[in-house]
Amino acid sequence: MKENKLEKTIIYIVLIIGGLTMVLPFIWMLSTSLKSLNEVFSFPPTIFGDKIVWQNYLKVSDRFPFIKFFFNSLKISIIVVVAQVLTSSMAGFAFARMKFPGKDIIFALYLATLIVPFHVLLVPTFILMRELGWVDTHLSLIVPSLVSAFGTFLMRQFFLTIPESLEEAARIDGCTPFGIFFRIFLPLSKPALATLSIFTYMGIWNDFIRPLVFINTTSKMTLPLGLASMQGLYSTNWPVLMAGTVISLLPILIAFLFAQEYFVKGVTLSGLKG
């Protein structure tokens, strides 16, 4: 009994130290963002300064349109997620349930590109966007991401687990593949759809290298790129930089607060297929 209590105590100590390590950088970010420049460059550092300085936040939003960045990120993420989920599940359905010549070869092509790192595509995609005149527009961030080989693969794998007997009845009643897809397959695939949505959303929302390469105009930047571009102007003004970081993290932290279970389930599902 006593040993059990000791073990529990050690476990809690480890967890709390670990938890502090996770949270401390966020607290440090928040506290720095509310300090004056003088206070930041004093030793030893304090968690809270003599007085709370809100001006850093005003300064950031003066020079950088963070609300615009936010809506740019939101627009791009939503369009890409909806499109990717739709194209992936529809093609996944075709691969899982339809017969047509060349199916195996086409699917093998999809599979083969799965292990090609995204960066192999970066330069050719840039050249393509340049030819299309889409550089420095949101189209360059949206259109190449409308389709995902991974998403198609994920949805196909999931659809294969749906028993055929379920659609048989609908088929006999004369239901079209369209009806079967929307009324039987999609409702049964909510977990897979949630996983794909969350992964795509996190990937696009936090994407940095693509906006960095494709976007130049400040008003068209996404949150991560806008944040990075601040670094050039306020290289050592840490209170202002941290205020910008807080603003940029706020939306996704709020989303996580409300939809934590979905995030957790999404990640968990992705691991199960491994």
Binding site: M22, P25, F26, P224, L227, Q231, W238, M242, S248, V264
Partner: peptide
């Protein structure tokens, strides 16, 4: 708590750690 850094953008995390 352990998941917070995962959802944060790498750019934001990198800037905080730089400081």
């Amino acid at each position: 708590v352990y998941f917070l850094p995962v959802i944060s953008s790498t750019v934001a995390v990198a800037m905080v750690w730089q400081w």
